Amino acid sequence: DHDVVPEDKFQETLHLKEKEGCPQAFHALLSWLLTQDSTAILDFWRVLFKDYNLERYGRLQPILDSFPKDVDLSQPRKGRKPPAVPKALVPPPRLPTKRKASEEARAAAPAALTPRGTASPGSQLKAKPPKKPESSAEQQRLPLGNGIQTMSASVQRAVAMSSGDVPGARGAVEGILIQQVFESGGSKKCIQVGGEFYTPSKFEDSGSGKNKARSSSGPKPLVRAKGAQGAAPGGGEARLGQQGSVPAPLALPSDPQLHQKNEDECAVCRDGGELICCDGCPRAFHLACLSPPLREIPSGTWRCSSCLQATVQEVQPRAEEPRPQEPPVETPLPPGLRSAGEEVRGPPGEPLAGMDTTLVYKHLPAPPSAAPLPGLDSSALHPLLCVGPEGQQNLAPGARCGVCGDGTDVLRCTHCAAAFHWRCHFPAGTSRPGTGLRCRSCSGDVTPAPVEGVLAPSPARLAPGPAKDDTASHEPALHRDDLESLLSEHTFDGILQWAIQSMARPAAPFPS
């Protein structure tokens, strides 16, 4: 592969990997390779389809078979030569091979799209000592099968071997295949498990690692696999990028399955594409389908809103127990993405979901129960707010008499603000006073009005108090039968009158 990737590009890729991570280095090298001529790309395919690569990765054979028959990708048995050289000459001794072996032994695996480039050397060096003999053996194999790289107009793939297949390693990572398949204008990513390549439709969760975000852009890794992070704060999961590491605690105790298979379609829109997988259930989501939507993949363990709600429900009964003089119970939860139609709101002032922060849900004790107040519409209280300059209440639009249902020339009671006709409430011909108009209920007259088809109010509507207090003497005590009587009149003013009279009014101040 030294004929494909020059030394300066190799060093530039290593520097970019240390600065921005393996995914960015892979993407940059792939983009550079696509700008080369067809001879360089053909050399790339020839390096990929060597015999030892085909033996190690069985899924490469179907890719090789898909090439046109007129494309010669065979390799000479006596060494490598550029395709432009007409004579089959043995190339001179390859010093770059020693360079590659020494550099890969030092860096474990470079971040390139060629056999030198995919593992994360920093994480491997940190986690190597417990498994040094086995990992050293794996390093000797890295130059042979560490990076199976493929690129063409139909298929483009980048393979990364790992030393996680050490025997006896619980939940060992089998390997990473960062794979971009450009077929019919689409893009897919796969993962390699035990020599087999699994596409998103049959993606397997190998051991402790999972394909957290099938994305090839942005600074985030394709698999949430930063070796420096180790395990999740809650004892979460091992990262795919942690090559040759000792077994780590796999999943939280509440995880239903340690080796679950995540779905390959969004649980909201039932469509495929780039998904984020939940650590607590097999569901996966688009970032845009979450509520609120996320802009980037959160670091650490992530769970959907259903799993978060289940966790909150487990903690909430203990938080609601009476604990005198104790601060509110704080339950730190990872930043969760909410699927459509589901929402768990945190306290005000918290950062938005999706940031690399930890939301704190506070379970406050329930407030003391209070008697429910009568629910009145805002339009129902409008007549009470229509007060004239002299303190006389004006008529609201649409006000109707509670007896006849007519809204023409209605009066407004100064005591309960109900609309009424003087002739309907006082049919006996009582003279109307000039000021202080009161309806039949507030004036103490319980004589029913002779209106055909309208039920008369119940005599129990009024329960006047002592006459010594004029204001308190007109406080009506309405009961269920009074409400039914008012409802039978089918008037809004009657219902409003009952609601206003049912509310307690402050006692009249004593004259000074």
Rank of each mutant, 00 (worst) to 15 (best):
P459S: 10
P448D: 13
Q497I: 02
G436I: 09
T430W: 11
G244I: 13
S245G: 14
R318T: 05
P427D: 02
P322Q: 13
L250K: 13
S305P: 05
A251W: 12
G453S: 12
G300A: 08
V344C: 14
L337A: 06
H479G: 06
V451A: 06
P317Q: 09
P433L: 11
V329A: 12
E350G: 11
T430C: 14
V403I: 14
D470T: 14
S299R: 10
E314W: 13
S291E: 07
C304F: 08
D255S: 13
C442H: 02
F420Q: 01
C289S: 14
C401S: 03
H421L: 01
A319W: 14
H363N: 11
P457R: 11
E484V: 03
D406Q: 09
L455A: 13
D406T: 10
P334G: 02
G436A: 04
H421G: 02
E475P: 07
G391W: 13
A460E: 10
G398K: 06
Q309D: 09
H382E: 14
E314M: 11
V410S: 09
Y361D: 06
P427V: 05
L455Y: 14
P253D: 04
H421S: 01
C289E: 15
L381S: 05
H421R: 01
P511T: 10
R461V: 13
L294V: 05
P365L: 15
L333R: 11
V360S: 07
Q325G: 14
S339D: 11
A370L: 13
C439L: 01
H425V: 06
A460G: 12
A396V: 10
R432L: 10
A248C: 10
S378E: 04
P292R: 08
A353H: 14
D406V: 08
V451C: 03
D377S: 13
R323Y: 10
S369A: 11
K261S: 06
P372S: 11
T435Y: 13
G375F: 13
L287N: 09
K261V: 05
L252P: 12
L455T: 12
A251D: 11
D445E: 11
Q501H: 07
C304M: 09
C269W: 06
T358D: 08
A366V: 09
N262S: 09
G273I: 04
A463F: 11
G280I: 09
S306N: 07
S305G: 11
D445I: 11
I276L: 04
L496F: 03
N394C: 11
S441L: 02
P317C: 07
H479M: 04
S512C: 14
G453Q: 08
Q309V: 07
S378G: 09
P506V: 04
P293C: 13
A288S: 10
V315S: 08
S458I: 11
R338Y: 14
P347Y: 14
H490L: 03
T447H: 12
A310N: 05
A507P: 11
